[in-house]
């Protein structure tokens, strides 16, 4: 065994490609990209790619590894955004702190929802998550004020302009936002990589394989799924706060709607759920399609990017169930050798 591996690596010239190397390389490239890319609009597009990559990675943290399909994750995004914006406008609290509160609210909600829901099988779980997210969205959409807090219903919330103010999480140029979302993404990716190798990761995969068997072996499914779900919800909520600060406007339909939930899930799945880099790959493939479809056709071919997403999803389920990352990984292994991980 040992000799074979050694032979492989010498044959490829000693270049060892493992997941950590790839991860670090990608992050480095992304960190240096703004030196080359100075056009505001392209930077904006890249921020959107990173944002969706972050959201997809957060989704993947629980769903990719437990093997359940949550199509209600957008509600955590909305919670994060609404809490941090409201704390800013009502209490003057910096969104950097507000987003932590949003994250905690999302975590608590996730645990409460997850407890009765996670033991439901496949489609039942998915439908339940959709229902929960819709309840949150519809409730906020139709509530102008709750306990004295102006939720403003469907009108949405506007973040007052503060120009360049770090503590208000606002900047007049795009570059700071770029580095912030890149750092968030880096944290999420590292967290996923760490989780994969940790006890949590192994337990999740055991539960995915066979929940009852895992329980029989002493793995407490409720505890581990709740933990993963809570972390995932926290990360998603932070993303929601970022979105709110970047666009300075959020409303229930865009922040908590089914479309966002589907986007997060589809990107993970097409990239490769249950892997660290899959969601990033999925976002990198799909987000530009959406931007191009909108920019080039200027409304002439509406919904085109979703048709592409749908076709990609169908192809993926039928022919690439492990996502696009699988063929890429096989290619890398063939040409570069290196560890499986």
């Amino acid at each position: 065994m040992k000799t074979t591996i050694a032979a492989k690596s010498t044959r490829s010239g000693g270049l060892r490609l493992n997941q950590t190397t790839v991860l670090v390389t990608i992050l480095l490239v992304l960190a240096l990209a703004p030196i080359v890319v100075t056009d505001s609009f392209t930077l904006h597009s890249m921020i959107m790619v990173l944002f969706f990559a972050y959201m997809a990675t957060s989704w993947n943290f629980v769903c990719g590894y437990v093997g359940q399909l949550s199509l209600g994750h957008a509600m955590f995004n909305g919670m994060g955004g609404y809490v941090s914006v409201l704390m800013f406008t009502q209490l003057g609290l910096s969104p950097w702190l507000g987003m932590l509160f949003g994250g905690v609210l999302a975590m608590v909600t996730a645990v409460l929802i997850g407890l009765p829901t996670f033991r439901l099988k496949g489609p039942y779980f998915t439908l339940t998550m959709i229902a929960f997210a819709e309840i949150v969205r519809i409730w906020i959409e139709n509530t102008n004020e709750f306990a004295g807090i102006p939720l403003k219903g469907a009108e949405g919330l506007i973040v007052p302009n503060r120009g360049d103010d770090f503590w208000a999480f606002q900047f007049s140029t795009k570059l700071p936002y770029y580095y912030i979302i890149l750092s968030f993404l880096a944290v999420a990716l590292v967290a996923t990589a760490w989780m994969e190798r940790s006890k949590l990761g192994f337990c999740l995969k055991a539960i995915r394989g066979d929940r009852d068997a895992a329980e029989a072996l002493g793995v407490n499914p409720t505890f581990y799924t709740s933990l993963a779900f809570a972390i995932s919800a926290f990360m998603t909520a932070i993303g929601g706060s970022f979105y709110a600060q970047f666009f300075r406007y959020i409303n229930p339909e865009r922040s908590m709607g089914l479309e966002l939930s589907i986007d997060m899930a589809v990107m993970s799945i097409i990239g490769g759920q249950g892997t660290v880099l899959g969601p990033l790959l999925g976002a990198a493939i799909l987000t530009p399609i959406a931007e191009i479809a909108r920019g080039e056709f200027g409304g002439g071919l509406l919904g085109l990017h979703l048709v592409v997403y749908g076709l990609a999803l169908m192809l993926c389920v039928l022919y690439f169930p492990k996502g696009a990352i699988e063929p890429i990984r096989k290619l890398c292994l063939r040409y570069f050798g290196g560890n499986e991980r």
């Binding site: 998915t126 749908g310 999803l313 169908m314």
Partner: peptide, 10 residues
Amino acid sequence: LLLTAGVFLV
């Protein structure tokens, strides 16, 4: 479910 979700999107 995912497959029919793809059909729905398309």
